[in-house]
């Protein structure tokens, strides 16, 4: 457990007046407040530190104790025992900022010196609980279908339904599943960020899917029928005669499900990659040479 220099955290001198503390705190709070820094974990950590520093330095009694015992915080308990023998009345009226940050997130150092968060607070302030964030990793096939999943967040199991069509990087909010509110304040929310892994052969952009399909030379030249794998199963495709390398075919409604629009799907775009035969037999070579001669004549 390391000593925390609260003066340094707020960027003020030890001689700073209560007004200086307040000003420094407000300035930093405006910079690092979670409402102003959505999804920024560093800002959230900084905000908690300055909140903690303010909690101590804006309270004359705590500040005195901190100044007296600061680096020798281990002796704080002795100090407390002495204090209990004296009559106490402080009740200073201060508030820390809430902003979706948990007030229970004080450092061990703070807890050790001053006990629980908000100790000595004159007025009960309602705080909204902390917002939790978590990540869910899916592969493309998982994201293709609506399914249920159980998440473990801060020791609690939450069963959620993940709608088909969820996108890579998408964030969804589960209201009220964050940290508990303080003094009757509402619970925070849970933000889930989805990471959808790439599929080895099928790429996705929005609701559309893209894949490359190898086509043998003979089918490309003469036309025919092929079967391809999609996320929805196998699909038969008619190939037109004289199909060129890179030809694109759009399969309407064979793409990805549209998020929260049941029954709607994007398209699947198939790009043909024509495979030139290798390891030709003598007969095949002769036939190709003959074909080449005919082609030159024409």
């Amino acid at each position: 457990m390391a000593f925390i220099d609260y003066y340094k955290v707020l960027g003020i001198e030890k001689t700073a007046s209560p007004k200086d503390v307040k000003n420094a705190y407000r300035k930093l709070a405006r910079k690092y407040h979670p409402d102003l820094n959505p999804n920024n974990k560093d800002a959230n950590t900084n905000f908690q530190q300055i909140n903690e520093a303010n909690e101590v330095l804006s309270d004359p009694e705590k500040r005195k104790k901190y100044d007296q015992y600061g680096k020798d915080w281990q002796h704080a308990d002795d100090f407390e025992n002495q204090k209990h023998q004296q009559s106490q009345s402080s009740g200073s009226q201060r508030e820390s900022y809430s902003g979706g940050s948990s007030q229970s997130d004080f450092s061990d150092f703070f807890e050790s010196m001053f006990g629980g968060a908000g100790a000595g607070r004159g007025r009960q302030v309602k705080y909204r609980g902390e917002d939790y964030t978590t990540e869910i990793h899916l592969d493309l096939i998982d994201a293709y279908k609506t399914h249920k999943q159980t998440l473990s967040v801060n020791g609690n199991n939450i069963r959620i339904t993940i709608p088909a069509g969820v996108e890579n990087g998408q964030i969804i909010k589960i209201s009220g599943h964050g940290g508990p509110g303080v003094n009757g304040g509402p619970n925070g929310d849970l933000y889930i960020t989805f990471t959808v892994a790439n599929h080895p052969t099928i790429k996705r952009l929005g609701n559309n899917l893209f894949c490359n399909v190898e086509l043998d030379l003979y089918t490309a030249v003469l036309g025919g029928e092929i079967t391809i794998d999609t996320l929805d199963g196998k699909v038969k495709l008619k190939v037109k005669p004289e199909t060129q390398q890179g030809t694109k075919v759009n399969l309407k409604g064979k793409g990805f499900p549209v998020y929260k629009n049941e029954g709607q799907f994007g398209d699947l775009q198939v790009t043909y990659a024509i495979k030139i035969p290798t390891n030709l037999t003598d007969k095949q070579k002769i036939l190709f040479e003959e074909l080449a001669k005919i082609s030159k004549k024409e």
């Binding site: 102003l36 959505p38 999804n39 996108e167 890579n168 990087g169 998408q170 790439n198 790429k203 996705r204 952009l205 929005g206 893209f210």
Partner: peptide, 22 residues
């Protein structure tokens, strides 16, 4: 903040577009 949200959405879209070429 609305602009930040819009830009973040755009980054996600562009990142996903880049994944087409991975």
């Amino acid at each position: 903040l609305q602009r930040v949200d819009a830009l973040q959405d755009e980054i996600i879209q562009l990142t996903n577009r880049l994944r087409l070429y991975e």
